[in-house]
Structure formats: structure tokens, C-alpha cells
Amino acid sequence: MFETILEGFYQAFVLILSGDPEVFSVTLRSIYISGFATLLSSLWSLPIAILLGLSSFPGKRLLRGSFNAMLGIPTVVLGLILYLLLSRSGPLGIFRLLYTPLSISIGQAILITPIIVSFTSSALESTDIDLRDLARTLGASNSQMHLAIMRESAWGVVLSIIAAFNRAFAELGVAMMLGGNIRYVTRVLTTSIALETARGEIAFSLALAVILMIIVFSVTLLLNYLRRT
């Protein structure tokens, strides 16, 4: 077993250093699909987070609780629901999105919505309450005050977006059920790992897993570095 793991690491470096075209295309596709999912999700998640973090309205606690509860949604369950919606006979079948990279992005965007909403709204809420009064007493309008608070909690917001990207990048259920793991089209790192493991290509799976982990850690480390500078 230990030899297999070592072999996996060895193969990972060989694959990375030799510039294996399939590995590179799968890796780039994974980054592209999950990056687009993060961008897409941010479009609706950030306004919801601002609303939850900086405003008071009836039903706020319920809405917040719902997003917190959805943090742990199994990816395969979400994948199944979206599969039924997007399949030819489903209500959204006319868009023919199933087994396309866009369908994976949409699925991942929905999956990471609770992460961005919960983490960002918590970051906004945890800023010093007196800063809101300060902005207002200096003449800021509500939107200017919200922007100032957003800026104060910028790192919290960025962290939530990075955590969401990492979650999307490393998930399997949605990518497998909505993408179908089609070679050169919807195959991403996680679905490749599942496929190679099923084929018994453990060393190759490990190599892909190493690449996946390198990317996830690199993004986080880069963020930490930028925060310190």
C-alpha cells in the first residue's frame, strides 16, 4: 500500500513535469468550471449576504438558519435533484444543459451558495457595530455605509469566496451526475479520480489527487500570503 502511495506521488510529479496534455486539460477544465461557478454564485450570494449581514427584517433568522442548514447538503442529493430538473423529460430539459460544462457550473454554483451567504454575512455582522454609526455620522448614505462595512470585512468576504471555490473544485457528486464524466468535455479532476480508481489505476488516481490538493492548498496559501503583505 505504502509503495502504491509513493508510486502515486512519483507519477504525479512525472505527469506535472512532463506536461501530460490530458491531465492539463482536465485540470484547466476543473479550474474553469469551478471558477465560473464561484463567479456565478457570487452574483446572487453576495447581495443576499449583505442583506442578512447588515439589515434587519422579519424572517431573517429563519432565512439565515436555512442557509446554515444547507451548508451540509450532500452533493449527490443536489446532483440528483438537478439531474431530474435538467434531464430531457424534466421541467428545464428544453435548455439541453445536461452533460455540459455549464450544467456542472450551475450545480456547483447552487452548492456553494450557502457557503458564501453564511460566511460572508457572518464576516459582515462581526465588524464593529460602532463603525456603522461612524460612517453614518460622517454623512454616509446607507449604500455608502454598506460599502464601508464590506471594505472593513473584505478579507472575510474573500475567504468565503475562496472556501466556496475550493468546495466546488473538490466536489464529485454534482460533476458526476450533471456532467457525466465525458472525456474532453465534462471530465474534471474529481470525476477522473473516481474513474481511474474504479479502473484499478490507483497510482494515476493518486497523481490526480495530488494535483487537486496542490491547487486547493496553493489558493489558500496565496490568500494567506496576500493577507500578510
Binding site: 460602532d130 454609526d133 460622517l138 454623512g139 472593513e152
Partner: peptide
């Protein structure tokens, strides 16, 4: 809020440079 401003007992600073703190009220205006 447009004609008055208040200095609080507790020190409240934006996490920015001194000049940006002092300029805040001018920029929003």
C-alpha cells in the same frame, strides 16, 4: 446627519490609514 457629526467616547477607526480615516466624510460628500 448631513449638518452634524459626532465624536464618540470609544475610539472607532476604519482599518485604513490616518489620511483615509480623515478623508472618509469628505469622500462620501
Amino acid at each position: 446627519r448631513q449638518i452634524s457629526t459626532m465624536v464618540f467616547q470609544k475610539n472607532v477607526m476604519f482599518n485604513r490609514k490616518v489620511c483615509d480615516n480623515v478623508a472618509f466624510g469628505l469622500r462620501v460628500r
